[in-house]
Design a protein around this nucleic acid. Structure first.
Lengths: 224, 224
DNA sequence: CCTTAGGCTGAAAAACCTCTGAAAGATTTG
DNA sequence: CAAATCTTTCAGAGGTTTTTCAGCCTAAGG
């Protein structure tokens, strides 16, 4: 789980980072809106934590910009301003939750869990068709049968299951599974899709991984 | 969009109902937790609005019960108790958002929009006549039938659908789809228009791509 | 009614993607 | 340290898509 914190108060940013890292998140922090928007648009994060009041681009603007790029990562907005108008503006700008500073640590964690749960983050199983991905054990389950996935297979399968029948470009899979700065090539994705198709077939799953040339992959339930 | 309101204060329930109906939602209200949980578990709602303090099953319990049935409808919790402990309990019980009474009407609407926006799995598409272009999967849809488009076919079709019955010179299509600096010729456009007409016919679309000599192409809905 | 240029079409060639198996290179496990 | 498993690399098969081209058709103007 990768989290991006966009917050100009470095002290708060650092303490948030520590807090989340202690719970097993991978955290990156940036200290201004422009950089934050850039990072966020790589679309490799599972959650954005966004301060409203920042020099340069403020939180509302960052949220709007990110959303305008069709990036649907959950956004949690933080702010000292408890004004109703602000909350409304934040939500309308594309935020998913609005939390007022100072906030209780446990409340923050509960919010994050709620947001990630909706993304399929806190559940222990992702289902589609007649098949489930056990997130604890990294296994594909279908009826009585099950099969173990390797780490990369698991990551790829997870992203596919999160986007279900929506298109997922190879680029994006590459960025999220191998890292945006890795020198992995698209054939890696193809190879892993092949691995997954083999394993899905082995347990009799009715999930198909469909390829659309030049666009990417998505899941479908076999018609038959 | 169907919304279920579970709220024992009938006055508040009714005013919420009116408020939402005015925005085009289909609203049902129930006045106690047991009934609410039953209704919710039918899994036919797009959103639950849930009061915490109710006789019998309270909001936390309803949320837990609904979630335990693997029902993932978004839950918005309302309460007069502004206690942090409550908010945490609510979120952990499975709520997606926690709003404290009294709340601003516009804030409520913003919350609802935020929740539905996320859930709506927004399959965006361009429609014209009896036909739609699925932008996510690059397919043409017409009733039950659908057909895949190749990348270039898709680009041309999208461009045509964006300008609808306005004239679109071949030159412009060339520039936009093949790039202004490519060495593609106008016959390319003609060929692709032919491809598209064939595919449109194959799915029984009533869209016609009309050519006007020296001027370009545009769409029309077939009269028949 | 004829001419002509623009538009249409089918076929074939060329280019391009995706898939796959095999093998080499890493990494983990026993 | 050896064995097993996982990841990367590579090259070619098999399709599909895109381009090319030549000839046909049709609308518009004389």
């Amino acid at each position: 789980m990768k989290v991006l914190i966009i917050e100009d108060e470095k002290l708060l940013a650092q303490s948030l980072k520590a807090l989340l890292e202690a719970r097993g998140f991978q955290v990156e922090t940036v200290y201004d809106g422009e950089t934050g928007a850039q990072y966020a648009e790589m679309d490799i994060y599972d959650l954005l934590i966004l301060d409203v009041m920042m020099p340069g681009l403020n939180g509302f603007e960052v949220a709007k910009q990110v959303r305008s790029k069709r990036c649907s990562v959950p956004i949690l907005m933080l702010t000292a301003r408890s004004d109703v108008e602000d909350r409304i503006a934040g939500l309308n700008a594309g935020a998913d939750y609005y939390l007022t500073k100072p906030f209780d640590t446990r409340e923050l964690i509960a919010c994050i869990n709620a947001l990630l749960r909706r993304q399929g983050g806190q559940v222990d199983e992702l289902r589609y068709g007649n098949t489930a991905l056990d997130l604890e054990r990294g296994m594909l389950l279908c009826g009585e049968k099950k099969i173990r996935l390797s780490a990369k297979e698991f990551d790829v399968m997870r992203f596919l299951l999160q986007t279900k029948e929506n298109n997922l470009p190879k680029e994006t899979i590459l960025a999220r599974v191998w890292g945006y700065d890795s020198n992995a090539v698209e054939n890696h994705v193809e190879v892993y899709v092949a691995f997954l198709r083999k394993k899905l077939a082995a347990i009799g799953s009715n999930i198909r991984i469909e390829a659309i040339r030049k666009l990417g992959y998505h899941l479908e339930v076999a018609d038959t």
